[in-house]
Design a binder for these strands. Structure first.
Lengths: 335, 335
DNA sequence: CTGAAAGCGCTAACAA
DNA sequence: TTGTTAGCGCTTTCAG
């Protein structure tokens, strides 16, 4: 391994001179600087980040905690955070929790050990340990997408209550009277986003005088295609003659459509199906899934800028921002 | 920030004792150990990874270079690498190149600076700089999914030549006589996977006596849904009356289906459409896309195990493994 | 414009 | 069973 000392020896200068030669606009004279850069390149010098981090006690790194890397929604956010942070001179450490508390804690711990300066986090919400660990060490942190129940720090999120309202009023407008909501309840009991969704959905229906009993008609379902299928089948088995369904995400909605098709129930005319995320495939004519579009990339960029600004200004991060969703109407909810 | 020294002071022992107390099975007596662990927890001690890395000159980290984090194919591999590596006591640094040479180089440099012990890499193939950088420093490395033209190191890949053959013989069996291949050529001129695909496809067709002129019928196309649409439209504009098309991936195939539907050409009866990746959505009845399944998770796990084994045994990584694809036939290619 | 020296937090020889 | 000491590679005062 080649170090700054090797270069110093080869160039016949001190380590200080070498170190400063890499820092633009430092004292070193042009000829010395060039000589050193040349030698560095020749012997294939690579600065040791660990040493620099230790010396500066600053890693110039932020952490990004996501729930599911295989879900393009989170993957795109991770990418955006990376791009934004890089532009500001920061690296990004990505950690995935897969909705698992233990994994979340492990990832947070890893980030703390790596001395990240701050964290952009999509928390699990099934336990408080993750953000508590950060709060105790007052590590700068921005919650993104969802905001845990007792969390009081900065956040950037989507307004899912409005999303629920948009979906509900659309169902009413297309003449549906037996709406159902499919959200993850068993597995993510306190997922605030879905609680907000339920609230908006229920309230809007109530205002329109459409009966909706959250206890019976907000049904637990996962967020995969298979979960959607299963949910539809359970719905029928339970004798709930739904004519409109809002799903926790697009994948779940696709599953519902699939099962409905198979059962001879036509998505659209017989059963309005609405998803969330506005995935690209929902746009395909063969699918044509009505969906609620949530800004993801914008969310990530805003959170990253706020976080790094907070870090640099030595103070705390203050952002509390809520983005508005948009209903994209397609055939799956039209009569 | 709290260090090992703070604990030592609080416990009235030396730093060595504290350090060793965290290492299971070291000399320290049980009571001392417990006392130290307790204090550590109380004052919220977090080990400094940079310091440890510097001291040990070992980061216990490997790098994972991927092309597109928003593509579930790569995201799932990244996850698998992470899981496998963690099981073996290694962290993973994820870096995304987005098929961009400069970004690839930057990510590799970042990994070198972070003193990763080895790298699992999906290379761009548009430039050699990435893997050359590694080779020069003889950094252990396993190429995954694709293998750059001049690269001579270890790899784990899919057999795309066979994939091409499978697709071709399926087209022949369903009576197609005017096959077309849609692969990225303009943007990724030397993408070895697609070269192999073309080779297998062309040879199998030649053997069956079906005319296929690679110069005219292997058409450049991107790998997104929109690229597939565009490609179909250009195909028609060029007067190529294709009756079968093999696409570089499923997304591209979905775009072709979409455009075909819109043009009144029925995927299946009129035009066999075949994709690659066997994405979950292709299974939906409304899509029913014939596709070539490639093991991704298995690939990643195998590469990671081989890499870490090589690292630990102090020697070089030796794996050269090719996985077999499988044709999943669905409606999009049936008469 | 350049160099000498100290130290970031941790671990591993070597002593006791 | 515990402590002393040195040093990983880098940056930054402070002297020249």
């Amino acid at each position: 391994m080649t170090t700054i000392r090797d270069i110093a020896r080869a160039a016949g200068v001190s380590e200080t001179t070498v170190s400063l030669s890499f820092r633009a606009g430092s004292r070193i004279s042009a000829p010395t600087r060039e000589k050193i850069q040349l030698i560095a390149r020749q012997i294939g010098y690579v600065p040791d980040l660990a040493a620099r981090t230790l010396r500066l006690s600053d890693s110039r790194t932020i952490g990004m905690l996501i729930l599911d890397i295989a879900n393009p929604f989170y993957a795109r956010m991770a990418r955006e955070v990376e791009t934004t942070a890089r532009g500001l001179g920061y690296q990004v450490l990505i950690g995935e929790s897969r909705w698992d508390d233990a994994r979340e804690t492990a990832q947070v711990e890893r980030m703390l050990q790596a001395k990240v300066r701050g964290i952009i986090a999509c928390f699990c919400e099934t336990a408080d340990e993750g953000w508590r660990l950060l709060a105790v060490r007052n590590m700068p942190c921005v919650a993104v997408d969802n905001v845990p129940e007792n969390y009081r720090g900065p956040y950037v999120r989507n307004d899912l209550e409005t999303a629920g309202r948009l979906a509900a009023s659309h169902l009413i407008e297309t003449g549906r009277r037996r709406p159902v909501l499919l959200i993850p309840e068993g597995s993510h009991p306190r997922f605030s986003t879905f609680q907000a969704l339920k609230k908006g959905f229920a309230e809007e229906l109530a205002q329109a005088g459409v009966p909706f009993d959250p206890a019976r008609q907000a049904i637990a379902s996962g967020l995969t295609i298979d979960d959607g299928k299963t949910a539809f089948e359970r719905l029928r088995a339970a004798g709930l003659e739904a004519d409109g369904v809002l799903c926790g995400n697009d994948l779940c909605a696709l599953g519902v459509m699939e099962a409905a098709d198979a059962a001879g129930v036509r998505p659209g005319p017989d059963l309005a199906v609405i998803g969330i995320d506005n995935l690209e495939i929902g746009r395909l004519a063969r699918i044509s899934l009505t969906s609620i579009r949530q800004p993801d990339v914008a969310l990530a960029a805003e959170a990253t800028n706020a976080l790094i600004e907070g870090i640099e200004s030595g103070g705390s991060v203050q952002i509390r921002s809520t983005h508005q969703p948009e209903l994209i109407i397609r055939a799956s909810s039209r009569r």
